[in-house]
Amino acid sequence: MSAVSTPSPTTTTARRDAEATKAAILRAARYLLARTPHADITLKAVAERAGVSPPLIVKYFGNKDALFARVMSFESDATDLFDAPLDELGRHMVRHVLTGQIERGADPLLRIAFAPIQGAHGDILRVNFRSQVVERLAERLQGPDAGLRAELAVGTLLGLGVMYGIARGTELRASAVEDVVDRYAPTVQAHLTP
């Protein structure tokens, strides 16, 4: 019989710490990308914002270009956003946008709103957003005008994210999440399953 090996608590803790550090670096890079042109962002600035050293960023991501390739990807964000059956997707998406703002202080989809200040890197954001979010959603939809309906649904969500996270609507922010979900989700769902 062979012995079953289990990771030591030290290994598990180190892996968890590494994941937390990578997440902090990505959050810092996203924050800076939303406020600063890509060309002006340094690894040092990302490191300071994340509370780590620049060599640690290089260890985890390789270089600035590799880091920002991850930051400019919407793949994992879309996976979380679309993680519900189609007939419940509107409610899930609205709740996801609001809880992201409340729990993490950010809505990962809103990065697209800052594409204009990013020059050529803004084009990368746009292409990724269209293929990884809008087109991916359209593939799930049935019936006519799936592409248009996907764009309208995502646009509706972005409006909610802007009002909550950027404009900081006082009434919206004072409302219970489920109340906003009850009011807003039918509008999103109408585009998904007309």
Rank of each mutant, 00 (worst) to 15 (best):
L81P: 01
A174H: 08
A69R: 05
L33P: 00
D107S: 11
G147P: 02
T170Q: 13
R30P: 02
G169D: 14
T193K: 12
I57C: 08
A66W: 12
R173V: 04
P9I: 14
A150L: 06
S2M: 07
L86H: 05
E171V: 12
D83N: 10
I124Q: 03
L98Y: 05
A29T: 07
L110H: 01
E48P: 01
V97A: 14
M1D: 15
L43Q: 07
G105H: 06
T170D: 11
R111G: 06
A3P: 00
R149N: 13
Q118F: 02
G159F: 10
R35M: 02
L43C: 07
V4S: 04
I112A: 00
Q142G: 15
A113M: 13
L148S: 13
G143C: 05
P37S: 03
G165Y: 07
L109W: 07
E48N: 04
R35P: 02
V177G: 06
V181D: 03
T36P: 06
K22R: 15
L26Q: 06
K64A: 07
R70K: 15
A146M: 08
F82K: 01
R130Q: 08
L141I: 15
R30C: 11
T79A: 13
E19H: 15
V127N: 00
A138K: 10
S5R: 11
K22H: 05
K59G: 01
D123F: 14
P9Q: 15
T99K: 10
G122F: 08
M93E: 11
A24K: 07
D17V: 12
F129L: 06
K59M: 10
D65G: 06
G100D: 06
I25N: 01
R30F: 05
A138C: 05
L137W: 01
L33G: 02
I102R: 15
A39M: 08
V52W: 02
S131A: 14
A106G: 04
A190P: 09
A146T: 14
D80G: 12
R70P: 06
F61E: 03
S73V: 00
Y31H: 15
D77Y: 14
L56F: 04
L172S: 00
K22S: 03
T99D: 11
L56C: 05
G147M: 03
A150C: 09
F82Q: 10
V58F: 04
A29W: 05
G62T: 02
M1W: 13
A146D: 05
S8M: 10
A50W: 00
P186I: 11
G169N: 07
A69G: 04
